[in-house]
Simulated assay, not measured.
Amino acid sequence: MTDRQTIALVLGTRPEIVKLAPVVRELKSRGHPYTLVHTGQHYSSNLNSVFFDQLNLESPDYDLGVGSGSHGEQTGTMIREVEVALNEIDPAWVLVQGDTNSVLAGAIVTSKMDAKLGHIEAGLRSYDRTMPEEMNRILTDHASDHLFAPTESAAANLATEGITDCVTVTGNTVVDAVNQHSDLAAAESTVLGRFDLSPGEYLVLTAHRSENVDAKDRFRSIVKGVSRAADSVGFPVIYPIHPRAEERLSEFDLSIPENIRLAEPLDYLDFLHLQQHAATMVTDSGGVQEESCILETPCVTVRASTERPETVTVGANELVGVDTAKIVAAVKAAVETDADWKNPFGDGTAAEQILDIVCETLR
């Protein structure tokens, strides 16, 4: 074995915590040294520390508390602080997951160090370069020493960009996470009772992306479409609202129809349970598209493109943009879907496969 053994995981948002939880558990089960570096990109309690507690994960070794800011300001601060942390840790490997500013910061810092960079969930492409996440994905993939692609489609995307070496299709750790947590959510979550909901008789809305909630007309169209869809199927809507979106509602003076019930951001187990029993999800989140597909809950995505095209291919998801009439039609069709598609994201052993490869390089 080499002298340096520590694997550092750099993360900063709720989806990263969820998707890296299986990797952390696998590291613990192997007794392999690791260090968690949390940038603090999500800084409210329900979007951050409560997740570690609820998922029975140890608190991060480093909590950088970067918080919000413009993309440049936030990423720049992260690069500075992550560099300090990784220089102290001196890891053999750094693992990042996904497409956030935290991922990009971790990738840039690692590329300047004597450490290998592994990108989990590599190769996703929406082919919409106006999305900050798309640039984060591309730059991180091209900086990485090993790329853990969730699907063959993602690996094919990498090949078109000339990345063919050190690419392994492992499946997505989101399957590991959903498998590990859905039973726990069923046992512990009281979310349906709190909101007086019956399984299969409500819709869930999540809208938080800047291109949707920072544009008044787009945000209004989404809300109107979801409200009309809810009326057409006779179900209420639960909208666990992101702080950014809530600020925009006030700023734009947008009213919320009575059949859309706003809620504070939910903890992971509550949200997972809410997803599992919803008639349909309406979302602009890539992670929600994946989880809904795995949970056999139909999804309608209020975007023009997706970096999870597999969800559309298997019939679990429909892209509708923000057109009100298209949202209504898609929700009505989704509610009647049989949800008999095949999960395209692997068999739930992604974390094990990833660490088999990483740990082998350290022997």
Rank of each mutant, 00 (worst) to 15 (best):
L11A: 12
G200H: 04
R303V: 04
V10W: 02
L9P: 06
L355G: 07
H208T: 05
D217C: 01
V282W: 01
D270Q: 12
E247M: 03
T337W: 03
M1V: 14
N46L: 15
E296Q: 14
V320W: 06
L295I: 00
L55W: 05
R4P: 02
T283Y: 02
V66G: 04
N48M: 10
P344S: 14
V328N: 02
E26W: 03
A92Y: 05
D176W: 06
V169S: 07
I238A: 04
T361M: 09
E133R: 06
R125F: 09
N259F: 02
D338N: 13
L55E: 12
E134Y: 06
D356P: 12
E83K: 11
D145W: 04
A207W: 02
T173Q: 10
L319H: 11
A245V: 03
E336C: 09
A122K: 06
L27H: 08
L117S: 09
R218I: 15
T160Y: 12
S59H: 12
S126A: 13
L295K: 05
C299F: 05
H71S: 13
S305K: 15
A177P: 05
S49N: 13
R125H: 05
E152M: 08
E310K: 07
D214C: 05
K28Q: 14
I260E: 03
P132F: 03
D165A: 15
V288G: 06
Y34F: 13
H142C: 00
I7L: 13
